[in-house]
Amino acid sequence: MKYVDAQQVQKKMASRLLANNVAKGLFLLATLFGLVVLVILIYRVVAQSIGWLDADFLMNKLSTAPERAGIMGAIMGTLWLMLVVAPVTMILGVGTAIYLEEYAKKGKLQSFIQTNISNLAGVPSVVFGILGLTVFVRALDLGSVVLAGGLTMALLVLPVVVVASQEAIRAVPQFLREASYGMGATKWQTIKNVVLPASIPGILTGVILALSRAIGETAPLVVIGIPALLIPLPEGILDRFTILPVQIYYWTIDSALVAEYANLAAATIVVLLIVLFLMNSIAIIIRNKFQKRY
C-alpha cells in the first residue's frame, strides 16, 4: 500500500494552491502599502509646491511675506552644518572602527563598547539635542551656532559611521593583512596601505548615509535653540543658522497663521527630498562600483 494516496492529494490540491496564491497576494499588499503611501505623500507635497518652487525661492533669504520668502539661509546653514558634521564623524567614526577592529583585544571590554555603540544608534534624536544643549550650547557657551549644532549632529550619526566602517574593515580579507604582516610591515603600515584603501568605499558609503540622516534630522536642532527668526546668512561655524528641516517645521507650525506657509513648507520638502535622493544615490553608486573585488 502506498502512503501517498493520489486521490487524497487531488482533493487537497485546490486549497493548497489557493493558500499559495493568498500568501503571494498578502506579501504583495504589504509591499504596495508602503509604496502607495509614499506616492500619495510625494504627490501631495509636489502639488502644493507647484508655483512656489522656483529659482527665487532657492536664492531668496527668509521673509515674513510668503511671496518673497526663500530658503537660501537654510541651504547655507545646511552646508555649514555638513562642513562640521562630515570631518568630525569621519575622524571619530573611522578612528573608533579601526581601533575596535584592528587593535582592541576581542574580550569583555570590546563587546561592551560594541553593544553600547549599537544602543547609541537607538537613542532618540531629541536626547542628543538635550545633550547638545547642555554641553555645547550652555557648558561650553557656544550658543546656538553651527559648531554646536554640528557637534550634536556628529554625535547623533556617529554610531552609523562606526558600524558601517567596522563592516567595511571586517570585509577586507585576512589574507591581505597576512601578506603585509608577512613582509615585516607594522600594524599601522598595514592599516594605512592595505586595510584602509580596500575599505574606503564602504566607509564612504556609511559616511554619506550618515550625512543624509543628519540633513533630515529636526528634533536635536530645535532643542538646541535654532531660531525661527529672520537671521543673516551664516558665514562661519560660529554664526547662528537654520537648516532645511527646521525651516519646514516652523513654516508648518505657522501655516495656521499664514496659509501660504504650507506651500513654502511643501516646496522646501521637495528640495530636501531631492538632496536626500541624490546623496543616497551617490552612496549606492559607490557601493556597487567597489563591491566584491576579491
Binding site: F175, E178, A179, G182
Partner: peptide, 11 residues
C-alpha cells in the same frame, strides 16, 4: 619571508 597557501596579491 612567507608565501601563503592561496595566492594573495594586493589589489
Amino acid at each position: 619571508g612567507m608565501v601563503f597557501q592561496k595566492p594573495n596579491p594586493f589589489p
